[in-house]
């Protein structure tokens, strides 16, 4: 009952805090099965990603979230699942097969996933990727692997700081990454995926390049 109101309120507050601007630089928004993989820089990652997606894609995109945290109480679960379309997964390693099945099922249904393959969040620098992205990409080769760099969010809420500073966060959507080829080992693929994400960062601290609106419209 509360969910229909809670969702726009949460997304509105997110935009008031961090802007949540999408910059489609390597691909256009499209309703095809995609694995958006992004850097994990703050607790706000999932909200900001959802706020940046166009409404019609948001309804068909599921952020993958940790069951141990988001399933912890009825309220958290209803926010995660009801508001944010989250797919709650057990990350303890006990149910790897079930997690993989659940993620593959979403993609095979034509919908998309948001993954944060770093697992933990670092202080700015992108950490090495966990292997889930590799296994999922092998399992569903038809899904597009889209790197997404979330800019500035680590400055909004640095690790250990409970209070946010409002800054404009831009999400840079890169070109789809070629899937793992036969013979390419797991570590090489994960390194390639991480490089594609890091390559999206711009040398200047600027989130506002003049040509961004044209790039968005492509």
């Amino acid at each position: 009952m509360m969910i229909p109101l809670l969702r726009p309120a949460l997304l509105g507050l997110t935009r008031l805090l961090v802007g949540a601007r999408a910059s489609w630089e390597g691909c256009a928004p499209a309703d095809v099965p995609r694995i958006y993989f992004a850097n994990h820089s703050s607790h706000l990652d999932t909200l900001v990603m959802m706020a940046a997606l166009p409404r019609e894609l948001r309804a068909r995109t599921h952020p993958v979230a940790a069951l141990d945290y988001w399933g912890g109480s009825a309220l958290r679960r209803s926010v995660a699942v009801g508001c944010l379309n989250a797919l709650l997964v057990d990350r303890t390693g006990k149910a790897t097969a079930e997690v993989m099945d659940a993620m593959a099922a979403v993609l095979e249904d034509g919908r998309s996933l948001i993954l944060f393959p770093e697992g933990t969040r670092g202080d700015g620098a992108v950490q090495p990727f966990k292997s889930g992205l590799y296994h999922l990409a092998r399992r569903v080769p038809g899904a597009e692997l889209v790197p997404v760099l979330i800019e500035n969010l680590n400055r909004v809420m640095p690790k250990g700081m409970p209070l946010p500073v409002p800054l404009i966060c831009t999400m840079r959507f890169g070109a789809p990454l070629p899937p793992p080829v036969d013979g390419e080992d797991k570590a090489a693929f994960l390194e390639r995926a991480r490089d594609a994400l890091v390559a999206l960062s711009h040398p200047s601290p600027s989130p506002s390049r003049h040509d961004s609106s044209q790039r968005t419209a492509q």
Partner: peptide, 26 residues
């Protein structure tokens, strides 16, 4: 003012030590 300050601080390099002061400014 809030949105203008957000634009200004977004483009300005800051460090951890500035966090509390910036939070209070907003």
């Amino acid at each position: 003012s809030y949105l203008a300050l957000r634009e200004f601080i977004t483009l300005t390099p800051t460090r951890r030590g500035d966090h509390l002061g910036l939070f209070l400014s907003f």
